[in-house]
Amino acid sequence: MTAKTSLMTAAPPPAAARAPEARTLVFCACALAVLALGAVLTQTIANPYVFFAAFIIVQQVALATGWNVLGGYAGYINFGATAFYGAGAYTGAFLLKAYGASIFLCLPAAALVGGGLGLLMGYMTLRVQGVYFAIATIALVVMMHTLVLNIDYLGGASGLALMPPEPPAWTGGQVQFVFLVMLGIAVLAVACARWIEISWVGRGFRALRASEEAAECAGVPTFRLKLSACAISGAILAMTGAPLVFYASFIEPETVFGLALALNAIAMPLIGGKKSWPGPIIGAVLLGSVQQAATITISSELNILLVGVVLIGFVAAAPDGILGLVDTLRKGRQ
């Protein structure tokens, strides 16, 4: 077949490539609708427990999405999500204690700290791959935990109780306000993840996940891209942690650097599916809801056991998560 004849019979680009702008518009409309729905709910639901529980579930969405940027898109399994989450939480606590800062100041500050920490971790560890990178991320949690334990100003091992400033009157109360802020963070995180996925950045991530050597030889600056993944992921995770002290009025190292959060951050994208942005949302909503239900009906201590069992089940039966399973079933039917 000559080049000329091939060109004449060239197939049109696949449907998936068409009209990305239209999809982005639909996504933006949905994101705004979610935010509006959240605002309406704070005005219509009187029971504050709903927002205590919803905050946790929405926080899980942001946490899972942040983790997935590095762990899912770039393929670097990060066991140190709580190092970033904790850095953000303590950045918020520090700014609140020292300056009585607003949550809207704490969020960008936490993102900067988390992004910087991600860059630092990436620069030091990304030259190693696989299990060695994962071990390095665990070490980061231990370092951050030890650091906070030894800073008296942040409350050390005893933790830190703080009174957040009054929320805006229209929100209906502190927990409703913090829920709305967390909803905004989750929407921002998902929008960021979606942009990565559909842009050249996501294509670069998928290429380096398939073959780092081939990606590099195709012109992809793999090291810079991985550093960016560390920084973006770190910034989202830290921003997710920043509202904690405004939510609970208390912060302690055992909780923010604990196993439950770290395990959840990994489990949720694995359950939902790591390859696309809806996966972490599905995993987070499913696991977060089940955990909340288990906390009320059985025991809060059951959470980790529950996560562990579900995680083992998915790794064994559906390693590509729910979305991967659906995809396989659909292909099977065709």
Binding site: S6, A10, A15
Partner: peptide, 11 residues
């Protein structure tokens, strides 16, 4: 892709 005969496999 057309020049190497893979245009039909683009998607």
């Amino acid at each position: 892709l057309a020049s190497v005969g893979l245009a039909g496999r683009a998607g």
